[in-house]
Design a binder for these strands. Sequence first.
DNA 1: CGACCTGTTGAAATATATCAAACATGGTGG
DNA 2: CCACCATGTTTGATATATTTCAACAGGTCG
Lengths: 256, 256
Amino acid sequence: VSTRTAIAKEAAPTARVADVCATCAARVVGLCAPLDAVALGQIAGGSERIAVRARDVIFLQGDPSAQVFALVSGAARLTRLLPDGRRAAIGFRFAGDLIGYTPAAEYPFGAEALGDATLCRMDRGHLDLVLRTNPAIERSLLDLCARELAATQDQVMALARFTAEERVATFLVALAGAHAARGRIGRVLDLPGTRADLGDLLGLTLETVSRVISAFRRRGWIALHAQSGVELIEPQQLRALARGEGACVGGCTAPA
Amino acid sequence: VSTRTAIAKEAAPTARVADVCATCAARVVGLCAPLDAVALGQIAGGSERIAVRARDVIFLQGDPSAQVFALVSGAARLTRLLPDGRRAAIGFRFAGDLIGYTPAAEYPFGAEALGDATLCRMDRGHLDLVLRTNPAIERSLLDLCARELAATQDQVMALARFTAEERVATFLVALAGAHAARGRIGRVLDLPGTRADLGDLLGLTLETVSRVISAFRRRGWIALHAQSGVELIEPQQLRALARGEGACVGGCTAPA
DNA sequence: CGACCTGTTGAAATATATCAAACATGGTGG
DNA sequence: CCACCATGTTTGATATATTTCAACAGGTCG
């Protein structure tokens, strides 16, 4: 399961490692925000920057979990694979997210870049060392894990009880949130991955994803722009769907 | 959303609190295993035992997360609720599991007892205090969270790509594992909850759950016994389904 | 006994998957 | 520059797994 060349190793050629990765570590959302320069330096000391291209494998499900990655730019997807080839995406990750931290000996899922991306790779053992000497980081890592858990539970809810339209709407709203959290302004979002990737995330086929997107477009709720651009024209309609209030357009629980 | 009496408060009348809860804390799987008597005493000091009856609410989604619970005996389910009444179960929990620990200010899901159960309730603030003075516990809590995350990801995979039969088989296999991990011998399992509860967990309707169980019974893979008892007669068949190898009974990838 | 809850099973309805074709796009090489 | 190919998207027709609606049976409990 695990015999593949992991990633194209390309250390950043211009800057010193510590330099580069202090920057990248600082961008890890939530994790390093409360850290002082010393702690940042500690993390940076054992890390290295990496560039990957679209569709490159970052690590495979089942690989020994010897490294931890921070996504500096771009997007990645975490996937579980079934023996017969069925695939589900656990989630998408964006700039600043931490990927691959697990107490298990092997990664419980694989990770691949959705587009060209840059990562910061650190040794798992080194990170553990830093954690043990910085209880504050360990605590924020626990928070991070709990937040990730809550997000995964949202996905469980969506997969268990949402219709196809509700799932796609939920994704678009969440994507808008991820853009906003990273300071990207404007209503034009960058759709990461193909329809098939979205299908894996939402438990749908690529055809169904395409049909739903077309339906939203026909209703004037979104517009598609060149090269993976989506504009949310009626975000409140999408949000209403994502809220899971049922088929009613207005409030159908209180008619008069 | 949060105006309901939480639970029937019934402090254990016979034993002293510290006594009872040292026992119950010790049973929290993984969390307290590596602890010494002092730490256990610390935890026990701020905790209290509670008895709940079938269907009792332990806490509601949206309630302030001021308490953390350890399930001493019985089973509970964690559920998310949608505005229009649709419901999904995030997971079932059994004796020794920790429930309701979240860094968020409010519980992101509700918890109810599936049958009669006993819990150990501790103050969130007290637990945090113990955590801060015992880095070892904090570390095992992080492990716990990561393991829970991995389990939730399994559920995502199942909901996204498994058929109804595969989902029910997965649940039965997992239930057998939970029984085994708690030292219960024999192949007769105790089905927690109703068909509707199972449906919420597996993203199916109660009728579909019933049909699948009937199908397994007709095939001789399981047998139903009085009062929620299930016997796994052909566990390997169920495990094959749960593995997600597709429709092939033998190995269909290598025909010659 | 009757009301109620849980489980089972059947028939019909439907959302989504599957299969299939056409269209767009971008790169590559002659 | 254009033909060509691989990849992704859209749309249609059909199939099917699961839901929905409905009836009934067996308990339990007041």
